[in-house]
């Protein structure tokens, strides 16, 4: 073959006629420019791999009490379901009572407003709880190759929930104080104990949530770094 007839002269168009023609050309184009990896005898690698497989599969493992594991697993599932059910029932109950009091013409406007706002906030919280659970479910049933991406999405939902909880502590604070103060006035009692208790509860909730917030932010940072 002279120079002009060479298939390599045609840019981007290489026609290979036979297997013997193909091999040298492919070898040249696929060879790395430089390599410091010494070629090894594949039989030695295979032997090493076989040994590793044998070692791996014969690893001693602790024996699990499967009956106990089943019991624990069922308990955990039960408590998780119960917790979600309580959230939903409580939300419906709060809204139901508020609507009932309003429809029946109750004079206790203060309680109606309190329950109404609490009910709406509760709906938002339940929405986030369900969203977080669904995200977690997606992590466990999807592709392990995308597990980290799904975990980031789940972590972000969780973070939004935590932020909402923290903001609602501030939002509820004046409202709860007003409610406790007005109720105490109506019953001719000192509002001090009620106010202290309400604010202490709100501060405790805020601090616990803040700790979770810091933990989730760290986790999310690590997840993002691992991508």
């Amino acid at each position: 073959m002279n120079k002009d007839e060479s298939p390599l002269n045609e840019k981007g168009k290489v026609t290979l006629q036979t297997q013997s023609q193909a091999e040298p050309l492919l070898d040249v184009t696929t060879l790395p420019k430089s390599s410091n990896i010494e070629p090894r005898d594949t039989s030695v690698l295979d032997e090493q791999w076989a040994e590793m497989t044998q070692d791996w599969q014969s690893q001693p493992t602790t024996k699990t009490d499967i009956a106990k594991l089943l019991k624990q697993t069922k308990q955990r599932t039960f408590w998780a379901k119960l917790s979600l059910a309580v959230d939903i029932i409580a939300t419906l109950a709060i809204l139901g009572v508020a609507i009932f009091m309003w429809m029946s013409g109750s004079q206790d406007k203060l309680t109606i407003i309190y329950l109404g706002i609490s009910g709406v906030l509760s709906v938002v919280f339940v929405f986030y709880v369900i969203k977080i659970r669904l995200s977690a479910w997606k992590v466990n049933c999807g592709s392990p190759d995308k597990a980290v991406k799904h975990a980031i999405a789940a972590g972000q939902s969780s973070l939004s929930y935590i932020k909402l909880l923290k903001i609602s502590c501030f939002a509820i604070c004046p409202f709860a104080n007003w409610y406790v103060f007005t109720m105490a006035q109506q019953t001719d009692k000192s509002p001090v104990f009620g106010l202290v208790l309400t604010n202490a509860m709100l501060v405790t909730v805020w601090f616990i949530t803040h700790k979770f917030h810091q933990k989730r932010v760290e986790e999310l940072k690590r997840l993002k770094n691992s991508l």
């Binding site: 992590v139 466990n140 049933c141 999807g142 592709s143 392990p144 597990a147 980290v148 975990a151 986790e219 690590r222 997840l223 691992s226």
Partner: peptide, 13 residues
């Protein structure tokens, strides 16, 4: 697959 999903998230966290 379930095990690998849990472990991938664990390792990354």
């Amino acid at each position: 697959r379930i095990a690998h999903n849990i472990l991938a998230t664990h390792v990354s966290k």
